[in-house]
Design a protein around this nucleic acid. Structure first.
Lengths: 344, 344
DNA sequence: GCAACTTTCGTAAACGTTTACGAGACGACC
DNA sequence: GGTCGTCTCGTAAACGTTTACGAAAGTTGC
């Protein structure tokens, strides 16, 4: 069923049918109704290839994820909820969402150049943003509008939305200091992912605020995974000069840390305080309940949809590139207690 | 950069350029090389809209997921690993993979009819298959080839791959019986998802094998989520005539069950034995280690890729629809022990 | 009653690609 | 030298859609 068959069936020209279907002005209300009725009856939907060939636009937004990537294997329900909300918003605006998985063995840059050249999407949302990100330089050169989840230091004409990793780290230090902690360790990702730098920056800011010195041995880099968290827990608990608090920039490491503590007879909060990152359903089942930060995933998803569609607006005011930092609210937990000895 | 610009740059007709790029016969080796060289130099990649409009095929496989769906919010690294392996295989065969998220508020049937009519994919992989699945009837009517992950009872011309839920349930019962368990409870999904029926079937087969009666009060339906598992654990532990073993058809409920047990001072294995479903990284951090079943996610992903591409083969022998059941291997854990009282 | 304008619609070109068809060049063979 | 076949390539149509343009019909104003 193509537009010509639909037009023949109605004894109308395809031009008029197309105008009717696309709500173009200058079509008689009566024929408009006839066309719409026949279209739904015959189940006609415009072929995407034909349409995008002619229009140069696909009405599709691409969401790039990296499968096989350790930071994502973690993936709890984060992406499912965010994508759902984003998809919902995009559908309201008559846009479709496709997720483009860049597989682990593929070169991200080559992957993107295929996506760009093939013209299957009107705009991209990038994830797992790096501090220095070659993909951004590449996209900036192309004319494909894009935004990133997580901000990079790589310059380019793009919008971004980032969680307030710096603010969370700062607040985590402040809460720990308030309870009397002095030796505060932090677990960071072992790769160049941007959030690690922001988290560290907030951590350092917190120490400076409190007037504490920076002890490099308390800054520990591990993979963002359950195993990474396990290793982190073991390292921290095994230190001769044990810290009294441990801050985590990812929630998936929390389970590993708890397991490592369990193995060594250490209890979070009582022996070493722990502040995790994002509150998630799994945390309900960790004991003692971790102190963490709350984020509205649905709001984030909607905001992503709005931001990416803004890029495509003909209104320069709207399509102007912008950055946005999403705040998280502190959720006290049982895992953050005053240090046993009242500090070192 | 389109094919005409490339052709002009080479002083060659676009027909020849197209033939060269597509490895069609009848191109002089010398010009073939020139074309390929210029294409990579100028970064030419065929526009997908134009190509698929002409060819009627997109060289793209769609993977349909339902976001916002409770059974998926669980999503541990399952999809990330499976999709990565599948994507890898498809890329080798010069196919692209897109994930099509059907958002929670959308009607799956309407969603699919859009996907079908717009012609953005050559074949589909469906997930979250229901025992009676309207989407299958719909796809069967359309000419779009598809396969399902999980088998349905809805007839249609399609291939499927399913995990051996029945075999796992049977084996779980057998292992429990071997240790002396007589009252064996089972947690099933509270919706029509196909795996629940197969798991129950294996459970019933195991009871029959052992000559045990079926106690309907031991068959408990809960949402496939951490919270569902929590509720399940509470229910089981609170029963007057407590079962000695509990079988789970999903790994995400395990965390909830453990938490509920912990709340009530019950220890898995010692007080009530637990057999979970798929082994995953998180389980390493549950204490005591759950008995579960091992699955090669990479192999599953590759197999999905092979199966879906087989659908498109011109060779009728190959494209014939087929079903396949993937076995899982038992992994003993500390959560499965002889019942305390030696059985009821 | 004619010009000017509006409303509505049909025609055809264009998007970028693939491919059927035919043409030209060249060598082989009788 | 003419015929045939092979190799290589150019031409043009086709895929399904949108849209600029113009035509036809109807309306208004004088």
């Amino acid at each position: 069923m193509n537009i010509r068959r639909l037009a023949d069936h109605l004894n109308i020209s395809i031009g008029t049918v197309s105008r009717a279907l696309n709500n173009r002005p200058g079509v008689h209300p009566e024929t408009l109704e006839k066309v719409l009725k026949a279209a739904t009856e015959l189940g006609y939907v415009a072929n995407q290839s034909g349409r995008s060939l002619r229009r140069g636009a696909t009405n599709t937004i691409g969401f790039v994820i990296e499968t096989g990537h350790p930071a994502h294997q973690a993936g709890d329900q984060f992406f499912y909820v965010v994508l759902d909300a984003m998809n919902l918003y995009l559908a309201e605006q008559h846009y479709d969402l496709v997720i483009l998985p860049c597989h682990s063995a593929d070169d991200p840059v080559e992957f993107l150049s295929r996506v760009i050249a093939r013209g299957i999407v009107d705009a991209l949302v990038m994830t797992a943003t790096r501090r220095v990100d070659h993909r951004i330089a590449q996209l900036a050169k192309s004319k494909l509008p894009f935004m990133t989840l997580g901000r990079s230091e790589t310059p380019g004409n793009y919008s971004w939305i980032d969680l307030d990793f710096e603010g969370v780290a700062l607040r985590s230090v402040q809460e720990a200091v308030k309870l009397g902690h002095r030796r505060i360790a932090v677990g960071l990702p072992d790769n160049d992912v941007a959030l690690g730098y922001h988290y560290k920056s907030g951590y350092l800011k917190g120490l400076a605020e409190a007037g504490f010195p920076v002890d490099e041995s308390l800054i520990i880099r591990v993979p963002t995974s359950e195993m990474g968290g396990f290793s982190l827990g073991k390292q921290v608990a095994g230190m001769a000069d044990q810290p009294t608090a441990l801050l985590l920039c990812s929630e998936v490491t929390a389970a590993g840390v708890y397991a490592a503590f369990g193995d060594m007879g250490i209890e979070a909060g009582r022996d070493i305080s722990v502040v995790a990152f994002r509150e998630n359903p799994l945390m309900r089942f960790l004991n003692p309940a971790p102190a963490c930060f709350r984020l509205d995933l649905n709001a984030l998803g909607t905001r992503l949809g709005e931001t990416v569609l803004d890029l495509l607006s003909p209104d320069e005011e709207v399509s102007q590139r912008r950055g946005e930092i999403v705040p998280l609210s502190f959720v006290p937990g049982k895992s953050l207690q005053p240090p046993r000895s009242g500090g070192v």
